[in-house]
Amino acid sequence: MRPGVQARAARPDDLDDLVHLCMEARKESGMGAQLCTDDAERMRRQVGALLAVEGGLVLVGTLDEQPAGLLLARVVGPGPFTDATTLALEAVFVMHTARRRGLGHALLAAAAQAAEEHGAVEVYASPLPGARGMQRFLARLGFAPAAAFRVAGTAALQRRLAHDPAAVGPAVRRGAPRGLEDLIARRRQARAARQPGDDAITARHLHVERAVPAAHP
């Protein structure tokens, strides 16, 4: 780590600086709305909640004792479907004027230390699409693709679900024919209604009908 570069756990009195850094990150991103809110007071409450909640990790990166970067993360797991604990990186940002000084590395090193202390076996990061600099930075540190995320607005999703033809099912779209289970049940009822001799006659009749085409192509 270079002299004057430090990454430490955030304190409540760092909230103003953290909000300022979040706002700067939003301005720089082409997808600001997906990064964070533009309401500074709301941003303050959200970062404060992450700072206070169990498993929340908020780091401040300083350059010559001046806040110039941040890292937001959460310890996730174990949960209903996995026994593993992971560290999910929500955001990593360094001010443009403080880059290429080792501050990003210092923040990630502190996050890796926190992950180890919490028993997290992996560290996940989900940088926004188009954040090429962050993508390259994470790739240099060994982050590999793990999954593809998709996003949909709640209201738009509800509208699509309400008008999706697939939601009514294939049976309704084709005039509600019987399903496979109904078909099997009807056939069983039909067999039960026949006399014992009828089944033998029907079987011999089908055997003859199928044998005739084979004998005369």
Rank of each mutant, 00 (worst) to 15 (best):
M1I: 09
G4W: 06
R8K: 02
R8L: 00
R8Q: 03
A9Y: 00
R11G: 03
D13N: 09
D13H: 11
L15A: 05
D16A: 15
L18F: 02
L21I: 04
C22M: 15
M23C: 01
E24S: 15
K27A: 10
K27V: 05
M31H: 13
M31F: 11
Q34T: 06
L35N: 06
L35S: 05
D39G: 07
R44I: 10
R45A: 15
Q46Y: 09
G48F: 05
G48M: 01
A49P: 02
A49K: 12
A52F: 04
G55Y: 00
G56D: 03
V58C: 02
V58H: 01
V60W: 01
T62H: 02
T62A: 15
A68W: 00
A68Y: 01
A68Q: 09
A73Q: 08
R74K: 12
P80E: 10
F81R: 15
F81S: 12
T82V: 01
D83R: 14
A84V: 13
T85G: 03
T85H: 05
E90L: 13
V92T: 13
R100V: 03
G102V: 02
L103V: 03
G104W: 07
L107Q: 04
L108E: 09
Q113V: 04
E116L: 12
H118Y: 06
A120P: 04
A120C: 14
A120T: 03
A120D: 02
E122A: 12
E122V: 09
A125Q: 03
P127F: 08
L128P: 00
L128N: 03
L128T: 01
P129V: 03
G130V: 06
A131Y: 03
A131G: 02
R132L: 12
G133Y: 04
M134I: 12
R136D: 13
L138A: 09
G142D: 07
P145I: 04
A148M: 15
A148E: 09
F149P: 06
A152E: 11
G153W: 14
T154Y: 10
A155C: 02
L157S: 11
R159S: 07
H163P: 00
H163A: 11
D164N: 04
P165D: 01
P165Y: 01
A167V: 07
A167C: 00
G169I: 00
A171I: 09
R173G: 06
L180P: 14
E181A: 14
I184G: 07
R186M: 13
R186E: 15
R188K: 10
A190C: 05
A190S: 12
A190M: 11
R191Y: 12
A192S: 14
Q195Y: 04
G197V: 06
I201L: 15
R204N: 09
E209F: 05
R210K: 08
A211M: 08
V212S: 02
V212W: 11
V212G: 03
P217N: 05
P217T: 14
P217K: 12
